[in-house]
Design a protein around this nucleic acid. Structure first.
Lengths: 364, 364
DNA sequence: CTGAAAGCGCTAACAA
DNA sequence: TTGTTAGCGCTTTCAG
């Protein structure tokens, strides 16, 4: 009997009157007599056969699935990455598995470990912090991993990172050069890699521009949307009188811009605003937000490609003399850095000295 | 020999000096002698064993994976859904597979068909159009599907839909009641379900408010960001002199708001703007955008829950007298509709007759 | 309580 | 060219 569940090679073989091996061959385009091909294809079509990918995976050792793990898909930066990764993956015949870790360290580690369950062939991980455990787990990963973010030298894992020090420097230098002097900095948590680096860039640019840094102009909170608004209100309430605010990402910048609007401050005349990431938000808001493109899309694309390369480097079997299971044995770990690019828009266009004589700031 | 690849039940069995059956039992918490448990657990730990999920799936017939397919993860509405779905899925021990179909019909259909490859246990599909092929494919789906969107009565598939007719009506009624009379409508494509329905709501609200509809105030383009800006510029260039614009989603609305700003029109005094979806964008921009919450998050959550219910209804085997393979046999297809909710913010707060005497529109 | 063995659906030797 | 058969790693009878 054949029925009782979805069609399989067996049902097709019965119906076509051939062996399951012939079915498999025909289905995989291996040589067969035309007559056999015809009968198998016919039977498969009639039965509405779809190969069981799980069985194929068990046999082949590859699932044709990739995993992308980040903290929160709500952040536009990750959305941009997901898009690129998904595009690259699908073009190579891979599906994409998504993991939101909510920045819970334990979840991040679990995702790396879960490479061992062979559910996906490789992992793109976007951690916001790198702990010693991260290094440990990444080093022992059961399959190829590409990290989007900074990684210490020793770790034998590919990484694609943004140069956010330079990025922040570009933004702040731009503000200094357009005559701003009291440049506030609304940052995310300082104990994160991006938080730390962006601050370095900020300070460096101030130094280069001959502006004495004023600690009271700095705020470190979270990377979320509401934080920017609160931070700028706080800065204004504290009487720090900034004439510009540089924010560690676009979400913070939009929040800051809102606060400025609420205080009746004109952007950019009385308050210039510059964000980071150059997400869709920057283009969509008013006035359009100057921002530093840190190459989120490029990093996503590159990470996906690097991962696929690793996967094709590992032919099929893993029983040869590999010192450790999985991992990027062939060739040392690569470190790629994408170049930041400042995008100046209306939110920082005008010079502050013009003192409000400028028109409505129309752009069209 | 045991080595040559990742640890398996066999390697553990060898090391612990028991049979693979005992290993499996211990690992699954089935009864065993304390001594056996100890030895197996020790061996597993020493080997760093992680069960092969693919093999488990092949055996059990379930992958513990769910698929979510929408057109473009770049749209904030889908991001909101993904978040909810992911949360519900992970809580139930399921992983989430993501598919961007780019609104290509053929891809959408392929995703439904690919349920047959047993890669995921169920599918949440967010189609923007329903063609006869959709109906056909959905009816013959190899596993449970929940559609987010409208579905004809006959189709034996669960669906969670928004009441966008009512939603649009709420928005436009709000504009009429605040004294607007020349209410433009920037819509997406008319041959999509959302496009069609939102227009119905728009027209209905006008009729109820005693406003004669002016076809020259309508624009149907795409749902993308740039389209809204162009559409409003176009409306203004055409001399249609709208005093408000209702947009079929927030992205369009932000575009329209930009155009208004570019023309030096004050929002809301000279031009009220209302969007739809109440995405993060609405809260993030300036002035904050009035919008209709169509319950994207709720729909995502509900869809995920319904799918999980279907999955638990199907015990484990599928060889009983099911007329068709898979599909929602137990219990008829359900149709759930989420209620829309108008969120009034600054972009439509002031009355038009006040004629610009209002302050800067500060909110704080 | 434990071990031997069957089998999930598929691919790939190996023979014929 | 085709069929037979042996697994991929796991769970689950079925005996012992």
């Amino acid at each position: 009997m054949s029925d009782g569940g979805p069609p399989t090679v067996v049902s097709i073989a019965e119906r076509a009157g051939v062996s399951i091996a012939s079915v498999s061959r025909v289905l995989n385009g291996v040589g067969a007599r035309p007559e056999t091909v015809r009968r198998v294809e016919r039977a498969a079509a009639e039965l509405g056969y779809v190969p069981n990918a799980v069985a194929q995976s068990l046999k082949g050792g590859r699932t044709k699935q990739l995993t992308f793990a980040m903290q929160d898909i709500g952040n536009p930066v990750y959305v941009a990455m997901v898009r690129q990764i998904q595009a690259v993956a699908r073009a190579a015949g891979y599906r994409l598995l998504l993991h939101s870790t909510d920045a819970v360290i334990e979840d991040e580690l679990a995702v790396v470990r879960s490479l061992g369950d062979r559910t996906s062939d490789g992992l793109i991980l976007c951690p916001i912090r790198i702990t010693p455990e991260h290094v440990e787990v990444l080093t022992a990963a059961a399959g190829p991993v590409v990290v989007i973010g900074s990684l210490p030298q020793g770790v034998p894992v590919d990484a694609v990172q943004a140069d956010s020090v330079l990025g922040a420097r570009l933004a702040v230098t731009h503000l200094v050069e357009s005559g701003r002097r009291r440049i506030a900095f609304v940052n995310g948590p300082l104990d994160t890699v991006p938080g730390h680096n962006r601050r370095q860039g900020y300070l460096k640019a101030l130094a280069e521009g001959g502006v004495v840094p004023d600690p009271s102009l700095e705020r470190a909170t979270s990377f979320g949307l509401g934080a920017g608004r609160e931070a700028l209100h706080d800065l204004l309430d504290a009487g720090t009188a900034p004439d510009a605010v540089f924010c560690a990402n676009d979400q913070l910048a939009l929040g800051a811009a809102q606060a400025a609007h609420e205080r009746g401050l004109r952007i950019p005349e009385e308050m210039a605003v510059v964000g980071m990431d150059d997400s869709d938000l920057a283009r969509a808001c008013w006035p359009p937000l100057s921002s530093v493109d840190l190459g989120s899309e490029e990093r996503g694309r590159t990470a996906a490609r690097m991962l696929l390369e690793r996967l094709s480097d590992t032919p099929d079997d893993r029983q040869d003399a590999a010192p450790e299971p999985g991992g990027p044995r062939p060739g040392a770990a690569r470190r790629v850095t994408t170049a930041p690019r400042l995008v100046v828009r209306a939110s920082s266009a005008a010079a502050p000295t013009a003192d409000a004589t400028a028109a409505r700031g129309g752009v069209r």
